[in-house]
Design a protein around this nucleic acid. Structure first.
Length: 256
DNA sequence: AATAGAGGCAACCGCATATCC
DNA sequence: CGGATATGCGGTTGCCTCTAT
């Protein structure tokens, strides 16, 4: 990176002194107002550059060094679900930045997953679309003694009563009623709609070639998930229940 | 030892979105 | 409400380092 600073802001790699100035400045004045940071701190950098440097390298709790196996695994799964939504993926990895995740993907994982996938490089929604087309039904929601059941053209899903409270149930009902018809049934929209009420995340698994759900522990900085595959129903379907303690708490069953 | 090529990664760019006035 | 400005995000670039020849 050359430093073509003639008149404009300085560019290129950051020096230790610049880092120190920026760090001191932000610690004193707080984040934000990046456009004025250069003037007020004496740095000859643009606001964007300052923001990026702080965000990716200087702010507290940045984790450097090699990705753990768990982190790598999560990146792969999240990428399969979200695509190149690096900031979202990084949000699940404490101390990691979107830039780092992106670079790691591009340099390490992209090749790896391509190798694993062989021909199947992207999510194949054709199967679910086919099923949706075939059934062409709307979603329904019902209640039995064990808990509510959400029925879709693809699946019937039972939620154990113990796994959610009344608020969750209300919320789910409301959402599902509002979304009586999901647009075109593409991209597993129904499933995403359902799981969002329960703090589940929904993934396509690049290795199995199947979607699955994962319970995310939002309060934990760890990568807490516990994959216990249920019997797949429909060739493209597989759900994981992943309650950290007591994986038998939630039950899902599936009907074609 | 010198050089070329590949890989890794920090930083930049442009666009989208959010916020302010 | 609309324009201006700030911030966030993902794609891309290009420098640096490592490795093979």
């Amino acid at each position: 990176m050359e430093e073509k600073s003639k008149g404009g802001p300085k560019r290129g790699l950051w020096k230790a002194e610049e880092d120190m100035v920026l760090k001191n400045y932000v610690e004193t004045h707080g984040e934000g107002n990046w456009a004025t940071v250069s003037k007020r701190s004496g740095l000859k950098r643009g606001g964007k550059s300052c923001r990026l440097r702080w965000k990716n390298y200087l702010r507290p709790n940045i984790k450097r060094g090699e990705m753990s196996k768990e982190e790598e695994d999560l990146i792969i799964r999240m990428h399969n679900l979200l695509g190149n939504r690096w900031s979202l993926i990084a949000g699940r990895l404490p101390g990691r930045t979107d830039n780092e995740v992106k670079n790691y993907w591009n340099t390490h994982l992209n090749k790896k997953t391509c190798t694993l996938l062989g021909k199947r490089k992207s999510i194949d929604h054709s199967t679910t679309q086919h099923i949706a087309d075939h059934h062409n039904n709307s979603n329904t929601i019902d209640q039995n003694q064990d808990g509510p059941i959400i029925s879709s053209p693809k699946t019937t899903m039972e939620f154990d009563q113990g796994s959610m409270d009344l608020d969750d149930e209300k919320k789910m009902k409301q959402v599902m009623q509002e979304e009586e018809i999901i647009d075109g049934y593409t991209d597993n929209a129904w499933m995403e709609r359902a799981v969002q009420c329960f703090n589940y995340d929904y993934y396509d698994d690049y290795q199995l070639g199947t979607p699955f759900m994962m319970r995310m522990d939002l309060n934990s900085s760890s990568l807490a998930f516990d994959e216990q595959p249920f019997t797949p129903c429909l060739d493209s379907f597989l759900l994981f229940d992943s309650f950290g303690s007591g994986s038998d708490v939630g039950t899902q069953s599936f009907l074609p």
